[in-house]
């Protein structure tokens, strides 16, 4: 288990801190020494073995915490807000380390966090807790692209940026028959296809992107565009048909949507 505030023994060296779980189970000295130097090398702190925790930075302390948690070769690693006390750069390096642990040691990692970026970065599955109950669970892709509950939506919107800004709403409210605004959601390969430029070439409509974002979720690109089509209504309907055929989700955005 690793902790938000590291919870290292300030009176012991980095070596002893990492060795602690092994010492508690009376592991032979030679084995402890071998295992600890292996772990310190893995987390990139082999030169800090004789340092004390208060001589280390936050990121280094968390690395010691991680090495200590791995000492007994657990099959599950619990992270209690492991990156919440770290700056963004250090957070990234710790996340990379966790990913490496997951891949090299084949250890399941359970992360408790309120940082959506952390989940987007390294998680496969996610469960949303509200008032001590799981209100939503699924793959990160599912929950982030289509959050079902309000709690999940509020959390996810901090990294997905798919809420339409007020200025765009004003345009939407001003729309008439020759201007229609749609939300187009691209998933995976579709993100790479030049859908909008095809439309502009093949149909007699003008395409104007009002707002949009493209994020990557678990290695799959996820795009979310608010687009205005200007042209004859009949032509626009043909465009919508075309988009549907490409297996891309498209929905008309109405002015009164909140």
């Amino acid at each position: 288990m690793i902790f938000q505030h590291f919870n290292l023994l300030n009176s012991k060296t980095v070596f002893t801190n990492v060795a602690m779980p092994l010492l508690l189970s009376n592991t032979p000295k030679e084995e402890v020494k071998k295992r600890v130097s292996e772990l310190l090398e893995f987390v990139g702190l082999e030169d800090k073995a004789e340092s004390y925790p208060d001589q280390l930075s936050g990121g280094q302390k968390q690395r010691v915490g991680i090495a200590r948690a791995l000492a007994t070769q657990p099959s599950v690693l619990l992270c209690d807000e492991a990156t919440s006390a770290l700056d963004p750069e250090t957070t990234n390096s710790i996340l990379k380390l966790l990913k490496k642990i997951n891949q090299e040691y084949n250890i399941t990692i359970l992360i408790i966090t309120h940082e959506m970026g952390v989940i987007r970065e390294i998680c496969d599955k996610v469960a949303v807790l509200d008032g001590g109950k799981v209100v939503e669970a699924g793959s990160v892709f599912e929950v982030f692209s289509q959050p079902k509950t309000e709690v999940a939506h509020n959390f996810v919107s901090s990294v997905m940026h798919d809420d339409i800004p007020e200025s765009v709403y004003q345009l939407i409210r001003a729309q008439d028959e020759s201007h229609q605004i749609y939300r187009i959601v691209f998933v995976g390969e579709a993100t790479g296809a030049p859908l909008l430029s095809q439309i502009a070439k093949q149909y007699d409509v003008e395409v104007n992107v009002l707002f949009g974002s493209i994020t990557e979720l678990q290695g799959t690109p996820f795009g979310n565009l608010i687009v205005k089509f200007a042209g004859e209504e009949k032509e626009i309907q043909r465009v919508i048909m075309h988009i549907h055929q490409q297996k891309v989700t498209v929905k008309e955005v109405l002015g009164n949507v909140s």
């Binding site: 288990m1 902790f3 505030h5 508690l24």
Partner: peptide, 19 residues
Amino acid sequence: GVMEAAQAMGATPRQIITR
């Protein structure tokens, strides 16, 4: 937090006190 870490490591109450 140190006690929490000790418990997470599976330390016995005696070990928590002495170590």
